[in-house]
Simulated assay, not measured.
Amino acid sequence: MSRTFLKMNGLGNDFVVIETQTQSFEPTPEEIRKIAKRGEGGVGCDQVIAIDPPRAEGASAYVRFWNSDGDEIGACGNGTRCVAWLLMQSSGKDAVSFDTEGGRLSGVMAGENLVTVDMGQPGLDWTQIPLSEEMNTERVELQVGPIDAPLVHTPVCVSMGNPHVVFFVDAPVTDEFATKTGSLVEHHPLFPEGVNVGFAHVQSRDHIRLKVWERGAGLTAACGTGACAAQVAAVRRGLTDRKARVEFESGSLVIEWRERDGHVIMTGPVSMDFAGKLPDSEGVAA
């Protein structure tokens, strides 16, 4: 039996979403790679998302995420907004909570095709990222390039349910720079589980321009958890106020690192692209 899916995106960061209420979805890494591959029979996406029935009281669903390389991950910010929007549409409610490997998340409708999600508290300790050795995550001893003239250096590390390293740069970086540098840092020995790599240019106290090389997915149009991590990193360094607009080439997210409870609040758009059916495969229980 073919499984149905929805194709969605948040700021161009695109997803194949599979609801498992009436269909089983236990994919192998190879199956995820086939679904995510653009062209040649794949649907094409940055991440695959499964919305499962809830496993705990108070949740509307349990949600799983995979990167396009087949690895399961704990969180995906733009995907979280898409999931929250779907669950609110199906329930007719303006607020929803659901569980992930990274913890419980919640969302509220903020306007037409606009969703605000509570991404919870960031992980700031070196064990939460995790790093391979004890280090101050506000100023990590890492640089890329020549010792006397590094391309980027002394980043901030933040976990948003997945590991992020944020480099602050003097000017917005090119795709070529982000790809070359991000791919080097992603598998650096300091990050035993790999890392998402952000390049943040602070334009003002309420405006960051950002480009993210995603662990297991590469350069993407936008990264929700990356935007959250960049804002948290900027606040930790005293570079922005608690609330700022994080701008990608594809659009912006509004991120607030709330002072009263330490939660990171993200507001941004969602878009439904189309529905379809996945081809049968031996790697997936149907």
Rank of each mutant, 00 (worst) to 15 (best):
T4Y: 10
F5A: 02
L6C: 04
L6Q: 09
K7S: 10
N13C: 07
D14N: 13
F15R: 00
V16Q: 10
V16C: 09
E19Q: 14
Q23P: 08
Q23G: 12
F25E: 06
P29N: 01
I32N: 11
R33Q: 08
I35Y: 11
A36H: 13
G39S: 13
G41K: 12
G44E: 10
C45V: 15
V48E: 06
A50G: 12
P53R: 07
P54W: 08
R55A: 04
A56R: 15
A56G: 09
E57T: 05
R64Y: 09
N67Q: 15
N67D: 15
G77I: 07
T80M: 05
R81I: 15
R81M: 09
V83N: 07
A84G: 06
A84H: 14
G92P: 07
A95Q: 15
S97M: 06
F98E: 09
F98D: 09
E101I: 11
M109Y: 02
G111A: 13
N113C: 07
V115Q: 07
T116H: 10
M119Q: 10
Q121I: 06
Q121T: 11
P122C: 06
L124P: 02
L124T: 11
L124I: 13
W126E: 06
W126G: 11
T127W: 11
I129N: 01
M135W: 08
V144D: 14
I147W: 11
D148I: 08
A149I: 01
P150N: 08
L151K: 07
V158D: 00
S159A: 12
S159M: 05
N162H: 10
N162Q: 15
H164A: 03
H164W: 04
V165S: 04
V166P: 00
F168Y: 07
P172K: 09
P172V: 01
E176W: 00
F177N: 01
S183F: 03
L184I: 03
V185T: 14
E186A: 06
P189K: 15
L190W: 14
E193K: 13
G194E: 05
V195I: 15
F199P: 01
H201T: 02
S204W: 03
S204P: 03
I208D: 08
I208N: 03
L210P: 02
L219F: 08
T220W: 00
C228T: 01
A229F: 05
V232W: 07
A234N: 12
R237S: 05
G238S: 14
G238L: 05
L239C: 10
D241L: 11
A244N: 00
E249I: 02
G251D: 05
L253P: 04
L253N: 12
E256F: 14
R258Y: 06
E259S: 15
E259P: 10
G262Y: 06
V264T: 09
P269L: 03
V270L: 06
S271C: 10
F274I: 00
G276I: 06
L278P: 01
P279L: 13
S281I: 04
E282V: 15
G283R: 05
G283E: 14
A286N: 03
